[in-house]
């Protein structure tokens, strides 16, 4: 006679092992300790988390600030360079035209009028440039610089027109003279 011994174990195994009497209290204590440990661990973990978050934030802030300032330095210097270049061109042109204007006219009143205007604009420009160096992000200052340069451009055009007028007059006189 044979039997499939797996059938013997289909029913629950006998539970004849008895736990020691103190096991319940012991477990209750373990449960309490475990919870305490976990909550401590959690609070330590959360402290670490906050610390890590703060460090990360500060680091990120530092890096991005650095990057930003670097970027803005580059931007500013690019802007400044552009402005300087434009300014230089303007000033050279103004100077050139100014000289030819002076050479072409004897009208001291006129020369002085333009000189005064240009000097005023130049003084303003120096002042704005100082402000721009101190506060390069202020859009109003940049606008002032642009306006100042535009004014000079207008002035330059005025001068050129004057010169044209004078040249025409001179040409007229020249033809007359010839």
């Amino acid at each position: 006679m044979e039997q499939d011994i797996r059938k013997l174990f289909k029913t629950e195994m006998e539970a004849d092992k008895k736990l020691p009497v103190s096991h319940r209290d012991e477990f209750q204590k373990k449960l309490k300790d475990y919870k305490l440990k976990r909550s401590q661990k959690n609070s330590i973990q959360s402290v670490f988390k906050y610390a890590a978050a703060i460090i990360l934030f500060v680091a990120l802030g530092y890096v991005s600030l650095n990057k930003l300032t670097q970027e803005s330095i580059i931007k500013e210097s690019a802007l400044e360079l552009q402005i300087k270049e434009v300014e230089q061109q303007y000033l050279e042109n103004i100077e050139k035209e100014w000289q030819s204007f002076k050479a072409l006219t004897d009208d001291k009143k006129l020369v002085e009028r333009y000189k005064k205007e240009l000097d005023d604009l130049n003084r303003d420009y120096q002042f704005i440039s100082e402000q721009f160096k101190a506060d390069s992000n202020n859009i109003l200052i940049i606008e002032s610089i642009v306006k100042n340069l535009q004014t000079r451009l207008r002035l330059l055009k005025d001068i050129q027109e004057h010169i044209k007028l004078l040249n025409q007059k001179n040409g007229y006189y020249e033809t007359i003279q010839i």
Binding site: A15, D16, K17, H23, R24, L31
Partner: peptide
């Protein structure tokens, strides 16, 4: 904790075995 201890009471003998 009360629920946890009652679950423990219900199953501890079987699990111990």
């Amino acid at each position: 904790e009360k629920s946890q201890m009652q679950l423990y009471d219900n199953y501890c003998n079987a699990m111990y075995n």
